[in-house]
Computed example of a mutant assay.
Amino acid sequence: MDGRPSHEPGTPRMSRHDWWGIVLEAPDPRALARFYSELLGWEIAKEDADGAAIAPPEGVAYIAFQYADGYVPPVWPAQEGAQRMTMHLDFEVVDLQAAVAHALELGAREADHQPQENVTVMLDPAGHPFCLYVDGSGS
C-alpha cells in the first residue's frame, strides 16, 4: 500500500510503523479487551477511558475496542430489520471443544445457528459473532 513503510527482517516490532488492526465498537470496550486478551493470550497494549487495544506477542497486528454510545449488537444469522453483522473474527484452533469451553468460561455464548461441523459460531460478551474452527482439510 502506498504510504506504508517497509522494514528489514528483524526490525524490532515496537519501532515498526506498519501496524494494522481492526476496531470493534462496544458499550464497555475495556471489558471486551479483557475478554479477548484472556481468550487469545494477547496482552492489553493500550487502555484509556474511551477504549483499549490488544496485541499478540509477535507481529504488528492488533484488535482495538472503542466506546460506542447507543451500541446495538448484531444478530446472527441476519434478520430483516435487525442490526446486521458487518464483519466477524475467525480463530483457528486445534481442539474445538476445548476452545469453545474456554470461550464460554470467559463469558461468550454459542450462537443458536451453527452452519458448519468444523466451526462453532460464538458471540462475545458484547454480542459480536466470532468463529472458532479447526482446519477441515485433513492435514
Rank of each mutant, 00 (worst) to 15 (best):
L32I: 00
A52E: 02
E58I: 06
L39H: 07
V60S: 10
A52F: 00
T11V: 14
A64K: 07
F65D: 01
A31N: 11
A26R: 03
G10N: 12
T11M: 13
A64F: 08
W19C: 02
E38A: 11
R13Y: 07
E25N: 09
P56A: 07
A45R: 15
Y36D: 03
R13N: 07
F65W: 08
A55C: 01
P56T: 02
G41Q: 05
R16Y: 04
D28V: 03
M14S: 15
A53M: 14
L40W: 09
P12A: 15
D18I: 01
I54C: 02
R16I: 03
G41V: 02
D28F: 05
Y62H: 13
D28A: 11
D18S: 14
L32N: 05
W42E: 06
P57V: 02
L39S: 01
A31I: 01
G59Y: 05
K46L: 15
R16E: 06
R30H: 08
D28Y: 01
R34F: 07
E38S: 13
P12K: 15
E38V: 04
M14W: 14
M14G: 09
P12T: 05
A45H: 08
G10R: 12
A53K: 06
R13A: 13
A26E: 01
V60F: 09
F65G: 05
L32Y: 02
D28G: 04
W42F: 12
P12N: 12
